[in-house]
Nucleic acid binder design. Structure first.
Lengths: 226, 226
DNA sequence: TCAACACTTCATTCCATACTTAACTATACC
DNA sequence: GGTATAGTTAAGTATGGAATGAAGTGTTGA
């Protein structure tokens, strides 16, 4: 058992592989070359590292033409990386949050495939406050009122529950240190809000920008000022 | 940012350190020597690794006599290790979850040379309740009634007081977070209860099992049901 | 007072593995 | 076909850091 854990941690523990995993945290698939640039190393080297991560089933690759796209094999990998992110020492932590470069990403960003950051945490708190969802052990339950709310976004919660993925659960946020909505519901919610143009993804970053429409809606629905 | 993460992951990524963290997952504090045995390495080496984990604020150490107890600095560390544990392929994972050893050691175990755990704490509370011992600053005093009680176990408290070891003192329990009886009296009391076959030591663990006779006596003397 | 024990520190050794150089396969597009 | 681009594979090197051995501090208990 300890050996299995040690095998996984030693894989995660390499600086280059950490950079790969950290980059992939935004839930998108990247090509080997893109990852080589992010990790600041050679194509041969990145290929070696990606091979190890795939062999351990942390990543999967999909060839598309002469490119090959790499992404997480399952959400659990992203959760583990996020959990490690929470361990960054506080003093160092503050600096980063205060760093203006990261202001956008602190404010509003994706965590794998759901909404995180200040805005993600605020929305989740408000969903609980308005009794749309309620904490139940390690998951969230959706109330009747909540089902109606999500159906406004064209989300069928009953249908979602049938998926093999965990329906709704809290995910600890590394900047806010508070939980935000993850799981199938969290992913669906973000997807629909993107479709509705509340948010737009930025290129090359996990940051998300809030549209004028989104600002209005966040205030109307959740009394969140951005 | 990526550098900070890489620093943490590289720390977690060493096989020996992984074994340390995995061992500490049961929430108990362990001594350096115990961890060296768990990780199957030398005291010097474990000391080096523990030093790094402490410097990164993943662990904290609290000296108790000539021992030093190591434990997680905060719950987030345990969460991260657990999250990594989730990455192990399912078939391998199931085998371990069925292991129920942790419950026993939390229930009843030795702390250095005296009784600790749930049972140790309960007995100590009852010794105070029945006015056999009473807290006095950083030590316990034995009452006249208490002397009579311990003499039933063939313990001569007056004789014990002459030894250079601290006679009786509270020792904070890591699982229960409550005090239990330590010092010369605590050690003698455990020794006699083992001799009287109230308890039996287990091999390779600090866990202690309670005999049928012990269960009866614990109930009769302390109203403790086990 | 002294021996045993728990743990640490430091200097040295040694090895696993990340990285490089080089050659190779496969796809895309002219 | 020919050339450029994306990615992989293989052999050789080198270096970071884990492990070891020896020595040291501090506590316990006879």
């Amino acid at each position: 058992m300890k050996q299995e854990i040690a095998y996984i941690t030693s894989l995660i523990g390499d600086p280059v592989r950490t950079k790969i995993l950290w980059t992939l945290l935004d839930g998108r698939a990247y090509t080997a070359t893109e990852l080589a640039i992010c990790a600041d190393t050679s194509p041969q080297n990145i290929s070696m590292h990606l091979g190890k991560l795939i062999q351990a089933n942390l990543l999967v690759a999909e060839p598309q033409g002469r490119h090959k796209y790499y992404r997480f094999s399952r959400p659990e990998v992203a959760y583990a990386i996020e959990a490690i992110g929470n361990l960054i020492p506080d003093e160092k932590h503050r600096k980063i949050v205060g760093n203006t470069n990261n202001a956008a990403i602190k404010h509003c960003r994706t965590c794998y495939d759901h909404l995180a950051g200040e805005v993600g945490v605020s929305i989740t708190a408000e969903l609980i406050q308005q009794k749309f969802i309620e904490p139940e052990g390690k998951t969230y339950l959706v109330t009747e009122k909540g089902s109606a709310f999500f159906s406004e976004f064209d989300i069928d919660t009953d249908e979602l529950k049938k998926s093999r993925r965990i329906f709704a659960k809290p995910c600890l946020d590394w900047t806010e240190r508070k939980p935000h909505l993850a799981g199938a519901l969290g992913a669906a919610f973000l997807e629909k809000m993107l479709l509705s143009d509340y948010f737009r993804k930025t290129k090359d970053s996990r940051a998300i920008v809030i549209t004028a429409k989104g600002q209005q809606q966040l205030y109307d629905r959740f009394k969140i000022s951005t």
